[in-house]
Design a protein around this nucleic acid. Structure first.
Lengths: 216, 216
DNA sequence: CGTACGATGGCTGTCAACAGGTTGCTGTCA
DNA sequence: TGACAGCAACCTGTTGACAGCCATCGTACG
């Protein structure tokens, strides 16, 4: 899907809007911008050194991703999650990823898929703290990506911001506790056997456990 | 979730951006703007009599909804769907709605839910042509809404544009053929019995059939 | 005749400014 | 002292304009 920097084969000319989206996403999911705090266009545009118009486009995207919620009169706030919403998010996530593993388990040739997933798990095994979270999310995103179902991948990515907020809400240590390589390995194993039902059950169990762990 | 106009209790002062989103959504899903046709900001802003900045915000939202796809150099086009993408969309939709009916079937008191769904079906029964499509989508959206899972509802709505494009792609007559009240009634019946697995199977079957019918 | 180079038009990226409405404060008057 | 009118600051909605990039076309030169 995405790319190596590919030296000499085209530079990464990213628009200010994309940069703003990325910066705000980090600021929100890292807690730098506290939940429920108001997002004032004039303030943010000055902080980021961009015009309000450009910022507004970026905010509109974050809003669609669920990181920003709208209040009265178009006023925007950093989204605040309660326990129920976290459970809801993980329920939807589980449904999407169950579809993903079902598709993967149904593939005739699963060798490359298994190899990619195992590689992602290896990365996760050695990573710690924030890097481990990134590795975990990367594993799950890769799962969706490998299905070749772009709509599925897009839906998952739309949820990624909310997932990250859930993680931040629960705290780093508790979140990292969810990212056990063994539990993930079980999912990959189930895909490898080609048993779609078992794979879906594995994902479902994993997600139930993870969400219960986050909100406990 | 959303609302009746609520006479005398506050008028619907909708921003130009929201109006533009609505107008473009209709234009695209009705085929007025043909798939793959380029969306030139200067043209559209003049047609809609709004400024480019306002239009850009609207386009950004439609892009996230999957009605607009991005080409090179920020150029935007009406999204074009092929058969595989339609199958993909319906696979994701099935996963989301399966979650919805599972939740609903698991409810202790399902009387109000059943009543609402039956009412939606009654509307569908009498409607014809485009109105029937609206009634059908409304039924499925209501299902998601009744779960109380806002994330689920949001994800479904994000998909609604793509669903509408699929319908347009297939043609009105073939789409209406999917909207048999009897088939939908089976789903509601399954929810009423409280059998989550059966309800999920009913949805899955319905979606498989619908998607196969659309792309055949 | 073919190729390389320069002008031109079209379209997006970005910005600064204006307009309208709401909130909150302050000073005055009963 | 309390309430109300008026004012001021704040913030979003919306707009028009400028700048830069890319593609295309025409032209001149080998």
């Amino acid at each position: 899907m995405a790319g190596q920097p590919a030296a000499l084969l085209g530079l990464e000319k990213t628009s200010l809007r994309q940069q703003a989206v990325a910066a705000l996403r980090v600021a929100i999911t890292s807690g730098e911008l506290a939940p429920s705090s108001p997002l004032v266009e004039t303030e943010l545009s000055e902080m980021l050194q961009i015009s309000r118009g450009t910022l507004r486009e970026a905010m509109r995207q974050l809003q669609q991703e669920g990181l920003i919620s709208a209040g009265a009169r178009g006023r925007l706030y950093v989204r605040h999650l309660d326990s129920k919403e976290i459970r809801d998010i993980f329920a939807v996530r589980a449904a999407l990823e169950a579809l993903a593993v079902r598709e993967l388990a149904g593939l005739a040739d699963r060798t490359t898929v298994i190899a990619e997933l195992r590689a992602a798990l290896d990365v996760m095994d050695t990573a710690v703290l924030e890097a481990r979270i990134e590795a975990d999310l990367n594993f799950h995103r890769t799962m969706c990506s490998l299905t070749g179902n772009d709509t599925l991948l897009h839906s998952w990515i739309s949820l990624e911001g909310s997932i990250r907020m859930s993680i931040m809400f629960a705290g780093l240590d508790r979140a990292v506790g969810n990212m056990d390589v063994g539990r993930h390995s079980a999912i990959v194993d189930a895909i490898e056997t080609g048993d779609a039902d078992e794979a879906a059950t594995a994902i479902q169990t994993h997600m139930d456990w993870a969400s219960a762990n986050l909100v406990s």
